[in-house]
Amino acid sequence: MESIPVEHGLILAAILFSIGLIGVLTRRNIVFVLMSLEIMLNAGGLAFIVGAARWGHAEGQIMFLMIITLAAAEVAVGLGLIIQMFRRYKTVDINVLSEMKG
């Protein structure tokens, strides 16, 4: 069976992570921000799976399971917050949430 260089998998994860980061930093629509966060989490999961494949162990997959659980919980709470925000401000622009300005 052909082999895959392990760094290629990790680099793919890094690229996905960076794209997600750009998304988080650039978008003003909070739904897109949340989606970009999902991309970043997913990239983290990918890195764990690559690690699991590198050692041939199942532990990496278990970590991925934890991440997916975390993502599910985070999305649930995050979407709840978005709904609440939309109800209050009638917008999805995260810049309106700047009351913490010092």
Binding site: V24, L25, T26, R28, V33, I94, N95, L97, S98, E99, M100, K101, G102
Partner: peptide, 12 residues
């Protein structure tokens, strides 16, 4: 205090 802009993306 100027860094406390209140913008989420700035913090990120």
């Amino acid at each position: 205090v100027k860094t406390q802009s209140g913008y989420l993306r700035w913090y990120a």
